[in-house]
Amino acid sequence: MRTHDTQRRSVNPPPTDALYDRLHFSQATRVGDMIWVSGQVGVDTTTMAPAVGMDAQARLAFEGVRTVLEAAGAGLEDIVELTTFHTDLRGDMPVFSRVKDEYITGRYPSWTAIGVAQPALPELLVEIRAVAVAGCGRQDRSPTG
């Protein structure tokens, strides 16, 4: 896609297209090279049940982000901004940070972590949303450039 392309495209990889029809939101929206990924949570897509524990939920949420970005023509390396929502911000941060660093391994994006009281499902511990610029992570540039 060209950078000056302003066509808006919804991204809903299978099996998330049912959510689009039922709840009226896209897993991501792409305009040009910019991609906004909706919040991804630690739910197993085969059972639609939340995983148990921060480690498992964070992994499923990051896998969801990866799947959506790939369907949009990008990858985790293209994330420029990460926003995470935590039900136990202080208590779960060491585990979450360790998992995050397994998925995002360099050229770290801007990151905001927010404590929340009430996620969409009571069993959820974390939700991850991201903004990416397709192709920017593959550029050979310095971390500050």
Rank of each mutant, 00 (worst) to 15 (best):
G73I: 05
T16R: 14
T84H: 01
E102R: 06
E102T: 12
G115M: 05
T3C: 04
F25A: 09
R2P: 03
Q40M: 14
G39D: 04
G145Q: 14
E70S: 11
W111Q: 14
V31Y: 04
D55N: 12
C136L: 12
S110R: 14
L82T: 01
H4W: 12
P94W: 06
L125G: 00
A18S: 11
M93C: 05
S142T: 12
R9G: 01
V95I: 15
S10W: 08
R9Y: 02
L19M: 10
R30S: 08
E63S: 05
A18L: 13
A113N: 13
A49R: 15
V31W: 04
I35G: 04
A74C: 06
S97G: 11
S10E: 15
R138S: 15
V99F: 02
L23E: 13
V126D: 00
A71D: 10
A49P: 00
V68W: 00
P143A: 08
F96W: 07
P119W: 09
T144D: 14
V95L: 06
A72G: 12
E77H: 09
Q40D: 03
L121A: 12
G106S: 15
E127M: 11
L60F: 07
R98S: 13
S110G: 08
Q7V: 10
V41W: 00
R2H: 14
N12T: 03
T29F: 00
D17F: 06
I128M: 02
D78S: 06
R22H: 09
A132C: 11
L60W: 02
G91S: 12
D140Q: 13
G115K: 07
G53Y: 03
A74H: 04
D5F: 06
G64V: 06
P109T: 02
E102M: 10
T112M: 11
P50C: 07
P143E: 08
Q139A: 13
G39V: 07
V11K: 03
T29I: 15
R138D: 13
A71V: 02
G39F: 01
A51N: 06
I35K: 04
E123G: 05
P13T: 11
A28D: 04
R66W: 00
E102K: 07
Q7I: 09
T84Y: 02
R8Y: 05
A120M: 13
Y20I: 00
M93A: 14
A113H: 06
P143L: 09
Q118H: 12
P94A: 07
T83K: 07
R2L: 12
A117V: 11
I104C: 03
R90K: 11
D44H: 11
F25K: 11
D88K: 11
L82R: 03
A61H: 00
G39P: 09
V65H: 01
P15E: 06
E77N: 10
V11E: 05
K100D: 01
S38C: 12
V11G: 05
R2Q: 11
A130E: 03
G75W: 03
I104P: 06
V126M: 02
D140T: 11
R8K: 14
V133M: 10
L89K: 09
S26R: 05
Q139F: 07
S10K: 11
T45P: 06
P109M: 03
D101Y: 04
V80I: 15
G32S: 08
R8S: 15
V133Q: 09
H4Y: 08
W36L: 13
A130K: 03
T87W: 04
